[in-house]
C-alpha cells in the first residue's frame, strides 16, 4: 500500500533531480551518486553488524553529497564525466570492501542495489516525504538562479551569482533525491528512471515547467506499469519500470533522429 502512495512522490523527486542533472549535462552524476549512496548504505550495514546502529538514510545522504561534491571537484582537473567516474569508482571500492567485511547482511544490500518498489515501508515513505519537501523548498527558493546558471554559467557568474554554491545546490538536490528513492528503484536502475524521462521531456517541452510536468508523468506511468506487471508475474517492479523508461527513450531517440 505504501508503494502506491509513494509513487507520485517518487515521480516528483525524480522529475526535479533528473531535469537538473540533464540540464547540467551531467546525467552520469545520477549513476555516480547512486553508487556513492550504496557505499553509505554498506557502511551503515557494516556498522550495524558490529552493533553500531546508524540511520542508513543519513549515512547514505552524507556519502552521496560528499562523493558528488568530490566528483565536481575532480572535474575541475579534467571533465565532469571523468570526475564522476573516478569518485564513483572510489565509492564502489569502499562499498565492496565494506560488503566483504560484513557477514550475513548482503541480502539487505541487494535491495538497495536493485530496488524493491513493492516492499516499501512506512519509514521509506517518511524519508521520501521529507526529501520531497526539502527538494521543493530548495528548488523553489533558488529557481531563478538555478535556471540562469544551468543556461549560462559564465553569464550567471558575471552577474554576481555564486555559481559554486548554485552548482553545489544542484549536486545536493540530486544526492538527496537519489538517496530518497534508492530503496525503491535501486542504485543500478536509478540512472534510467531519473534520466530517460527527463531527457525525453526536455525534447518536447516549451518551458522548464513543462519539462518537469512531462518527466513527472512519464516516471509515474513507468513506475505504475512496473507495479502492475510485477504483481502479475514475479519480476522486480523497479526493473520493469527502468526497462519501460529506457524503451520510451529509445523510441523517442529513433523517432527524433
Amino acid at each position: 500500500m505504501d508503494s502506491i502512495f509513494a509513487i507520485p512522490l517518487i515521480s516528483a523527486i525524480v522529475s526535479i533531480a533528473g531535469n537538473l542533472a540533464v540540464f547540467r549535462k551531467a546525467s552520469f552524476l545520477i549513476a555516480g551518486v547512486a553508487h556513492s549512496a550504496l557505499a553509505g548504505v554498506a557502511l551503515a550495514i557494516f556498522l550495524a553488524s558490529i552493533s553500531i546502529e546508524l540511520d542508513y538514510f543519513l549515512v547514505a545522504t552524507l556519502f552521496a553529497i560528499f562523493f558528488a561534491l568530490l566528483a565536481t571537484t575532480f572535474s575541475k582537473f579534467s571533465d565532469i564525466d571523468t570526475g564522476i567516474g573516478v569518485s564513483f569508482a572510489l565509492a564502489m571500492a569502499i562499498a565492496v570492501i565494506l560488503i566483504s567485511l560484513t557477514r550475513g547482511y548482503t541480502a539487505k544490500l541487494w535491495a538497495f542495489l536493485f530496488g524493491e518498489l513493492f516492499l516499501m515501508t512506512e519509514k521509506d515513505f517518511l524519508y521520501i516525504s521529507i526529501a520531497l519537501v526539502a527538494i521543493l523548498l530548495i528548488f523553489g527558493f533558488f529557481y531563478d538562479k538555478l535556471i540562469f546558471f544551468l543556461f549560462d554559467p559564465e553569464g550567471a557568474e558575471a552577474s554576481g551569482i555564486n555559481t559554486r554554491l548554485i552548482d553545489a545546490i544542484v549536486v545536493a538536490i540530486v544526492a538527496i533525491a537519489v538517496v530518497a528513492v534508492i530503496r525503491a528503484v535501486g542504485a543500478i536502475l536509478a540512472y534510467s528512471i531519473f534520466v530517460a524521462p527527463s531527457a525525453v521531456a526536455k525534447k518536447f517541452s516549451k518551458s522548464v515547467a513543462q519539462s518537469l510536468i512531462y518527466s513527472f508523468l512519464i516516471t509515474l506511468i513507468c513506475l505504475i506499469l512496473g507495479l502492475i506487471v510485477s504483481s502479475a508475474i514475479p519480476i522486480s517492479a523497479s526493473a520493469i519500470s527502468a526497462f519501460i523508461a529506457s524503451i520510451i527513450y529509445l523510441l523517442v531517440a529513433i523517432e527524433k533522429s
Binding site: 540540464f23 549535462k25 535556471i147 544551468l150 543556461f151 549560462d152 554559467p153 559564465e154 553569464g155 558575471a158 526536455k202 517541452s205 516549451k206 518551458s207 522548464v208 513543462q210 519539462s211
Partner: peptide, 12 residues
Amino acid sequence: PQRSSLSIDLPI
C-alpha cells in the same frame, strides 16, 4: 559570453 558556453537546448 561566447554562445558556445551556453546550454542552448534548455527549454527556455
